[in-house]
Write a protein that binds this DNA or RNA. Structure first.
Lengths: 243, 243
DNA sequence: CCGGTTGTTTGATCGGAGTCAAGCTACCCA
DNA sequence: TGGGTAGCTTGACTCCGATCAAACAACCGG
């Protein structure tokens, strides 16, 4: 085991651990080879843009490591962080598959590596393996469901409730359960970015955090959050009818 | 031409004028025959429910006439009208294609007829004609784009600007251009429903309408709206940087 | 024709959250 | 090491829009 070092020079589709959980899990080895041979890999620094709202897609990106944010903005400079994508996830499929322009920008939130798979390769894969198209369909459908839920939340919940919900999502995605029943998360985002995810300002975000601390819902220190009781957190946005 | 009366007993896919503008336009006659023979048609009265949030889809609906609203609601009774669908449009594809539950309810807003196409038929069509799947993919992708835009609008625009935008959408979809350059629309919705489309209350809706009348942006009488100048209307939500 | 239900309008009030302004912290790099 | 730049926090103020309440209009079934 020590003879042949397991060193891998760069991202490799065959060894990618995340692939099993994504659209690409339906691919056979031969098909994977197509991607592996055709892809172009690149590193992005935090803040760097992968593609910009309005651009025309030439292919699809796949995140090898790091975290990418999808951000939409209007003429006056208002922005919303619509989605977070990490390791193994696909990026830019919506516009590509719909044959339209990007309607949001993608930017690296951490140092990240992403692979680019060009149009001819994707096209060949889709023709060769119809299950891949169906996978993407499901993915877009799920995203649509999430977006609809966000719309409802934005109009019916307070900033505090929306933030509690966001924290709960983070707990599910990045949280570690401690032995005493409390959860802890390393937030993947700045407070500013969290504010723009729930559609509020950094000032309101800051005040909300402070209040939740004094209420014992969560303890914040830097980007680390301790959640003593997930039940209490859930109650913030999904209040129990029965006490 | 008078010998053979063109009378059609019920909805018929072959004579459906709206089909050309929908996903089904890619179907051949033989494929259309499959739907035509397998579909079940039904009438719905205003307020009647076609399917309910949480139900499991058994097929896809297609609107033959009338107007259907997609409504999402939470436990506390808050609701949002997410989308309007009319003649020829497909309904319930998201949950069906994603193999998940409905995440919104569909209800008739006018007297409507809808056809139901069952799972086996859709499955056969998708296998037989891959273009249909691609069409649906585009449709979901477009819906997702719309949803994202709505999220951004809800956080960055005022009730008035959001309503102006909604009116503009109605002008594009249902508007008639008068000879003097003004547009007129027969609103497909009650004020309550418009309020829930832009995420506000009937009271605020009413006040907003009144203000826009006094400002000369639009003239409301019942469900009919006159828009003297679309330019002015657009300015409400997309203010010109250059005067 | 009337009483009931549902939708719309109007008024008065209140509060959540945005805005503006200023100080604070942390980190980068010259 | 220190100054510069982001990001974060805090305070004071304002205002949009929700809420509560009530009057009104419109429509429907009996």
């Amino acid at each position: 085991m020590a003879n042949q070092p397991l060193f891998v020079a760069g991202p490799n589709c065959f060894t990618c651990q995340a692939r099993e959980r994504t659209e690409w899990c339906v691919l056979q080895d031969a098909e994977l080879r197509l991607i592996e041979d055709g892809k172009k890999s690149r590193r992005y620094l935090p803040g760097e843009t992968i593609f910009r709202e309005g651009d025309t897609p030439d292919g699809i990106f796949c995140i090898e490591s790091g975290m990418i944010g999808l951000r939409k903005s209007d003429a006056e400079g208002n922005t919303v962080l619509l989605n977070l994508l990490s390791e193994g996830e696909t990026l830019g499929y919506r516009a590509f598959l719909a044959d339209s322009e990007y309607d949001a920008s993608a930017e690296a939130l951490e140092p990240s590596t992403a692979c680019f798979v060009d149009r001819p390769t994707i096209r060949r894969l889709l023709e060769h393996n119809p299950a891949l198209g169906l996978r993407f369909l499901k993915r877009v459908a799920k995203d649509l469901g999430d977006a609809d839920e966000k719309i409802l939340h934005n109009v019916s919940l307070s900033v505090r409730a929306r933030f509690a919900h966001l924290l709960m999502v983070f707990v599910e995605r990045y949280g570690k359960l401690a032995d005493n029943g409390s959860s802890s998360i390393d937030l993947p985002l700045s407070r500013q970015d969290m504010a723009s995810m729930i559609g509020t300002t950094p000032e309101s975000m800051s005040r909300t955090i402070k209040k939740m601390e004094t209420d014992g819902i969560a303890r914040f220190s830097g980007r680390t959050v301790q959640i003593p009781s997930c039940r209490n957190l859930v109650n913030e946005f999904d209040p129990e009818v029965f006490v």
